[in-house]
């Protein structure tokens, strides 16, 4: 019954819109935004989704948020992007999984006159982003190189600038994964000559179990290991489980992770994990909606890069409101 009533209401509202025609201002129309993330199941994407949806509600827009089941499925994600373009929405938010593969698909959106603002990861299609670009207006993201660099500075300070450090990555192919490792490795090499970096290994897709197996192996073969840096929630939690299985004393080997998640936060509170870098996923979602809506309604050209920031947190400041707002369970 309720559905029927809503249906009737919707139809009559539509009739009203049609009859009044141009009298309806663009600002009154609910904007339809299509968001394509790099994943869906990961808590990080759920936080981005929440940020986008909450902001959309405030701005009289709707967000349809989709993403592939795993962050390795580039082709699936490109199909999602194509479907979104075919729907002719008012705007598209896109997190580039295939950083170059997506270029022709983005050009199709551009040709169809649909504004695109990227989030989390920018596609690399040559040229600069902006209104003249056939790729996108810009990107709202975390400076992953900078975030990796911050993790390196913290690690260097924690272990007194010397000893063996192991990096466990979550992806060799996606840009944020690459940058989080590169930012860390470059900073260690430049600033901490006393630190020996073991070869980076990857638990592809951020598989906790694979990460646990890899870190267990590294612990066995490097008795003098001083620190581990894990580049996402899955691998950081896997590393924590490996520490537990090896019955290490808490804090003996420093562990710096990335993002949050209930288990990682609990590990940081208990001292099993030393600290982690958090991004601002809610801000990433909100800023992307903000930029798109303002551009569509008011032709306000958004910044080419919207840096949404990142912070280091540990047991001491995990409850700090500024940090807590960025964490998710």
């Amino acid at each position: 019954m309720k559905k029927l009533l809503t249906g009737i209401a919707a139809v009559s509202a539509l009739a009203l819109v049609v009859s009044t025609g141009s009298a309806v201002h663009a600002a009154d129309k609910t904007l339809n935004l299509q968001f394509i993330a790099k994943g869906f199941t990961h808590q990080f994407w759920q936080a981005v989704k929440k940020g986008a949806e909450d902001e959309a509600k405030k701005m009289n827009a709707t967000v349809n948020f989709v993403g592939p089941a795993s962050e390795t499925m580039i082709d699936t994600q490109l199909q999602m992007l194509d479907s979104a373009v075919a729907l002719k929405p008012d705007g598209i938010g896109y997190a580039a999984l295939g950083t170059t593969e997506s270029c022709s698909h983005l050009a199709a959106a551009n040709k169809a006159g649909i504004p695109v603002y990227m989030f989390d990861t920018a596609a690399k299609c040559g040229g600069t982003l902006g209104t003249a670009s056939t790729t996108a207006l810009g990107v709202a993201y975390t400076d992953s190189l900078g975030a990796g660099k911050l993790a390196a500075d913290k690690m260097g300070a924690l272990i007194g600038g010397k000893g063996k450090v192991f990096v466990i990555g979550h992806s060799q192919t996606n840009q944020t994964g690459i940058d989080r490792v590169a930012g860390f490795v470059n900073e260690i090499k430049a600033k901490f000559k006393g630190i020996t970096l073991l070869p980076v290994q990857y638990a592809e897709g951020g598989d906790n179990q694979k990460a646990q197996d890899i870190v267990s192996t590294v612990l066995v073969s490097n008795k003098d290991l001083k620190g581990v840096y894990g580049t996402n929630e899955g691998v950081a939690e896997g590393a924590g489980q490996a520490f537990k299985a090896a019955k290490l004393n808490k804090g003996k080997i420093k562990l710096i992770g990335f993002d949050s998640g209930a288990q990682q936060i609990a590990n940081i509170k208990s001292g099993l994990e030393t600290g982690a870098i958090t991004q601002n996923p809610i801000g990433i979602g909100a800023k992307t909606v903000d930029n798109l809506v303002n551009y569509i309604r008011n032709k306000t050209v958004p910044g080419v890069v919207t840096d949404t920031g990142f912070y280091y947190y540990d047991a001491k400041n995990v409850a700090d409101p500024k940090i807590a707002a960025d964490l998710y369970n």
């Binding site: 994943g39 199941t41 990961h42 089941a69 795993s70 598989d207 906790n208 179990q209 646990q212 899955g234 939690e237 896997g238 489980q241 537990k244 209930a262 288990q263």
Partner: peptide
Amino acid sequence: LTARLGAAEPDLGL
């Protein structure tokens, strides 16, 4: 698997 990880992960196993 859940005992190894201390959690049940919805996106693990494929």
